[in-house]
Amino acid sequence: MASQGTKRSYEQMETDGERQNATEIRASVGKMIDGIGRFYIQMCTELKLSDYEGRLIQNSLTIERMVLSAFDERRNKYLEEHPSAGKDPKKTGGPIYKRVDRKWMRELVLYDKEEIRRIWRQANNGDDATAGLTHMMIWHSNLNDTTYQRTRALVRTGMDPRMCSLMQGSTLPRRSGAAGAAVKGVGTMVMELIRMIKRGINDRNFWRGENGRKTRSAYERMCNILKGKFQTAAQRAMMDQVRESRNPGNAEIEDLIFLARSALILRGSVAHKSCLPACVYGPAVASGYDFEKEGYSLVGIDPFKLLQNSQVYSLIRPNENPAHKSQLVWMACNSAAFEDLRVLSFIRGTKVSPRGKLSTRGVQIASNENMDAMESSTLELRSRYWAIRTRSGGNTNQQRASAGQISVQPAFSVQRNLPFDKPTIMAAFTGNTEGRTSDMRAEIIRMMEGAKPEEMSFQGRGVFELSDERAANPIVPSFDMSNEGSYFFGDNAEEYDN
């Protein structure tokens, strides 16, 4: 993207840094990872977990959730003011799984939030270390993106479920800051804005008074975040219109849905970061690795190297396929839920299948599930090659597409044709070009129609051997075009429920 120079890199967003050079960025990201790792080690000690239990991804998720809940100030305040039966607002906890007599047992633990905050700050040299908290939120978000298709949420806001490739980060909490905003897809931002506008339509006082002023500035800020994701002048001009509207209503909703559809071809720039579970960072720190000293990046080879040398386990339900569970977590670790499966298959070195073909449910185990038949197995999170994460949407291309997802959002900077089903997408653009945004709409449609099938995206960008740390010898991959490109292809993934 041309304006790259004016933006802070995501590592800076990730670490609240002012302008830093590459070495400083690597050190501050490393410091953040160190903090998460030290916190995780301490929690495993508190909970008396064995090494194996500490490497269980379900335990990692519970521990991450506990610290996120302990620092969720708004919710904590709300819980104190609106006490609900049987919930102690000062405590947080969740299921911890232990191996007892050759069987997995679930144990519900409860801790004072104050105590968890103390352990977290102690692991982070006394700081609140917001960057580390956001990092864990993005890992949870990436896992949700890989596990669930947001059909219901899309339909509720009037969008087409086939636009799911635009929904990265749709389950990120509001408090995820600049680093969170960077990884949100165009569809996620559109959905947040539509929800806001709908509230304004239904509630006369939404934009009024002292609160209304705050609401208005939040609305304009979200519009600017979305505008910054678009790469064409016409899309940005249309966002200006939406932002400046005196009284946002149905016309703005129409414009936003139009823009979301246009992003299936004229893709937005959305950041991709490899955020790993805390149970990967903990053992690495415990083994003596100093992330701050060595430096770390979320968008280069580092996460690949770390996963190459990590042992992570997962509980497996009786009829689940461990290899499929591994694929789910591998995609989440690489922030690749909406990437082209052919690119992923090449990088991973084994075939990556669409969601609907995987015999696996989510990673988390519900409290009512029976533990008797639970097994555990090693997650295979290694890769054959590594590639640089991208934040450009890439230019655009036609490809055989599917009944489910009709476009992709690249996660890796790797040369390819970008699949999208042009006739299906263009069919949504018939007729409606009147109104105050008509010239911009016409211009956007013209650009979409001009998108050429034979153009290559990320020209000359390749993948790298894991021994090639400096990215000196790019390998331009070859793809098996007979395979499906979309992950949520004609899909039956479970729906995400809060």
Score class of each variant (00 low, 15 high):
Ala2Ser: 07
Gly5Cys: 01
Thr6Tyr: 11
Glu14Tyr: 09
Gln20Gly: 14
Thr23Arg: 00
Ser28Tyr: 03
Ile36Trp: 10
Ser50Asp: 00
Tyr52Glu: 06
Arg55Leu: 08
Ser60Trp: 02
Leu61Ser: 07
Ile63Asn: 04
Arg65Ile: 02
Met66His: 07
Glu73Asn: 13
Tyr78Trp: 01
Leu79Asn: 13
Pro83His: 02
Thr92Met: 13
Tyr97Glu: 13
Arg99Glu: 10
Met105Val: 14
Arg106Ala: 13
Trp120Ser: 04
Gly132Phe: 11
Thr151Phe: 10
Ala153Glu: 06
Cys164Tyr: 12
Ser176Thr: 09
Ala182Ser: 03
Thr188Glu: 15
Val190Pro: 02
Ile194Trp: 15
Met196Ile: 06
Met196Gln: 02
Lys198Glu: 13
Arg199Gly: 07
Ile201Lys: 07
Trp207Leu: 04
Ala218Trp: 09
Tyr219Ser: 14
Lys227Gln: 02
Gln231Lys: 06
Ala234Phe: 08
Met239Ser: 04
Arg246Ser: 02
Ile253Glu: 10
Ile257Leu: 07
Leu259His: 10
Ala260Pro: 12
Arg261Asp: 12
Leu266Val: 03
His272Ala: 11
Ala284Arg: 00
Ala284Pro: 01
Glu292Pro: 05
Lys293Ser: 04
Gly295Val: 06
Ser297Gln: 10
Gly300Ser: 05
Ile301Trp: 03
Pro303Ser: 02
Lys305Val: 05
Leu306Val: 15
Gln308His: 05
Asn309Ala: 00
Ser310Phe: 03
Tyr313Ser: 02
Arg317Pro: 13
Ser335Lys: 06
Leu341Phe: 12
Leu344Lys: 09
Leu358Phe: 12
Thr360Pro: 15
Val363Asp: 09
Glu369Lys: 12
Glu369Cys: 11
Met371Asp: 06
Met374Tyr: 05
Ser383Ala: 00
Arg384Pro: 05
Arg384Lys: 15
Gly393Glu: 14
Asn395Ile: 09
Asn397Leu: 04
Arg400Ala: 03
Gln415Leu: 01
Ala427Phe: 01
Gly435Ala: 14
Gly435His: 11
Gly435Thr: 08
Ser438Asn: 15
Ser438Arg: 02
Gly450Val: 14
Lys452Gly: 15
Gln459Thr: 04
Gly460Lys: 00
Ala471Met: 10
Asn473Arg: 00
Glu484Val: 12
Ser486Phe: 12
Ala493Met: 10
Asp497Met: 15
